[in-house]
Each structure stands twice: as C-alpha cells, then as structure tokens.
Amino acid sequence: MIPFVDLKAQYKSIKNEIEAAVLKALESTQFVLGSEVVALEEEFSHYCGAKYGIAVNTGTSALHLALLAAGIGPGDEVITTPFTFVATVAAIDYTGAKAVFVDIDPVSLTIDVTQIEAAITERTKAILPVHLYGQPADMNPILEIAQRYGLIVIEDAAQAHRAEYKGQRVGSIGDLGCFSFYPGKNLGAYGEGGMVVTNNPKYAQIIEMLRDWGQERKYHHVLKGYNYRMDGLQGAILRVKLRHLYAWTQARRAIAAQYDQLLAKADVKTPTVMPYSHHVYHIYAVRSKERDVLQQRLHEQEIQTGIHYPIPVHLQPAYADLGYKAGDFPHSELASRELLSLPMFAELSPVQIETVSAALCERIPCLN
C-alpha cells in the first residue's frame, strides 16, 4: 500500500534526535510552556522573518487569538474564502464576527484578489487570505486594498510552512500570520500545536496573555483569556523537526516536479505554480472531471488519496446561517468536485511516485 502520508517513515528518520529531545523535556518537568516552547517561538519566528512568535495549542487557536488581538468582534466582518478547512471560518465565528466570502481564483486556488474590494462594507475589519495547499495567496494586491481601507491582514498559513511570496516567507507579510502544527502538516507536532507570528509588539503581548487565561503575570488576569498553551513536549519535538524543514521542503518540491513530469500528458490538470510563489506542496492535488472514478481506481490499487475539500464552507450545514447558497462561488464549488490529493510526503520514493502516476495513466491516457 502507498499511504497518503507516512508519519512513521519520518519518525524513523529522526528517531534518535526526537527521543533525546523528549527525554530532556521530561527531565525538565516543564510540561506546559517552558524553555523549549520559548526557544521554539524564537526560532520559528526568526525562520518566518517575524519579530515575535507566540506558541499555542492548535492552529485554530492561533487564528482565534490573532483575530481577537486585531480587535475583531461582534458586528465586524472578515473577508476570506469558502475553499478552505472549516477552522478558518470557525475562528472568525468564535469572535462573534461574520465571515464574508470571496471566490477563489481557478488557477491558484487562493482568494481571487480582483473580487475583494467589492465585498468590503462599513463593517469590514480584516482580510484573511488562505495560503492553500502550500501556495501563497497573491499578497501585494491584498495589502494594497487593506491599506486603502484601513483593514488588518491575517494570513492563514496553516498549510504553508516555509512558503514564500516574492522571496518573503509567508506569515510575516501581513499584520499577523497563523500556523498549524497538526501532525500531517509540513512541520507537524506529535499531537496538536500552533503559532502566531507578528512584527507588532502590541499584538504579541495581547496574544501571549490571551493564550494563558489573560494573565499579565501569575494570578493577575487583565483580559478574559483562554487555556490555549502549548505543551513543553511539543515545543521540544518541533524544535528538532524545524531543523529538517528545509530538506523536507526540497524533497516535496522534487516529488511535485516528478509528478508534473510523469503526468504532463495525462488528462488531469496538475497544480499551477504562480510566478510569485515558492510552493511547498503540503498537498499535491490534480483536477479531473472524473475525480471520483480516479479515486476509486487508485483505491483498488492500494493507493491512498484525499479530497481537500469536498464541500466548501458556504455549503456546510453548520454555516448555513451565513446566508449563502449553491452557485454563489462557482470556482470553489467546481474545485470541490474535481480536486484529488495524491500521496505527498518527503520520504515518498521515486518508485512510489511512478506507481501512483502509472495508476492514473491506466485510467486516463498518458501519451508517450
């Protein structure tokens, strides 16, 4: 069987480093926050090109606290895309604000920057672009619109560790950047984890308090906060894995290039890398009108695949109260019916890539 993601292979490659780091963290008995988390915050924020990093328990918490730090609350509107994991929209909802959707660009699959301005109202307070699948959104037009209208830009970089927009690491481009360290991510914890990065010291201070019950110092609660703290063990594990992120990213990009070559003449559309983008391929998704047939074909040959995402958020029953209907965002809806995510992880072998590609070509002609 060829897995969609193979976390065991990655673990085996760094087993000794991980076990040494975990043992050190256990012996320190700093199980919540602590020195390993502080060190991770410094290392990861520097890696992103940002001044401050605040570690939290999940990527969703990172989004939630970034929105709160930016002053988003009841009655406000935040512009984002419906073609994303539901957490993007859930975090907006947690603040009492309303998500306002803009369709995706059908080529990049990220927010269509030409439609953002038309969605702005007097209640709009922020734009929340999603760097989907590891490809950055087109940030310069977003920043220009935000500046003209006095809006905050919060990057959802949950799938885009080490991705770059015109040479600048994502997360440090807008006012705040939010990352997830869910195990399957390009930089994944052995459990849950997240991070907010920013160059704004006020935002950093607010988020640091909010994640730990709103405390300015122990038992002195300035804000109504949350229990969103990162575990010390996850901090230690992520510090080890951060050292390998460059090599893993290069491997993902090489795998994507091999897929591109092998599928170049297949009747599937491979991912388009935008000219401004350094794509890190959290997901390698091909498009086909026969997506479901292809997925079944691969399943029969013991090749695991995924669908990211089969139902856009505006059509999810939980978010029917936003008032959208089928047909409102045609590019998002078509993408949800056509995209198929192929196996993608740094340890994927050339033989496995060839096997996946050959299986696709059996169903859809690949011309020699």
Rank of each mutant, 00 (worst) to 15 (best):
A25L: 14
A25D: 07
L26V: 11
E27G: 14
E27T: 06
E27M: 15
T29W: 14
T29S: 12
F31N: 13
F31A: 13
V32R: 14
V32C: 10
L33S: 12
G34T: 10
G34M: 04
G34V: 04
G34I: 12
S35W: 00
L40W: 01
E41D: 10
E41N: 02
E42P: 01
F44K: 03
F44I: 11
H46I: 01
C48P: 03
G49N: 01
G49I: 09
K51T: 09
Y52F: 14
Y52N: 04
Y52D: 07
A55D: 00
N57S: 15
T58K: 02
T58A: 00
T58M: 01
G59Q: 12
G59L: 03
T60Y: 13
S61Y: 05
S61G: 10
L63P: 02
L63V: 10
H64F: 03
H64D: 09
L65T: 13
L65I: 10
A66C: 08
A69K: 05
A70P: 01
I72W: 06
G73K: 14
P74Y: 03
P74T: 11
G75H: 05
G75Q: 10
E77P: 05
I79A: 03
T80D: 03
T81G: 01
P82N: 07
F83S: 14
A87I: 03
T88H: 09
T88W: 06
A90K: 14
A90M: 11
A90L: 15
I92Y: 04
Y94T: 04
G96H: 08
G96F: 07
G96M: 11
G96E: 02
A97F: 05
A99W: 15
V100Q: 08
F101D: 00
F101S: 05
V102F: 05
D103S: 09
I104V: 05
D105W: 07
V107E: 12
L109C: 12
I111M: 15
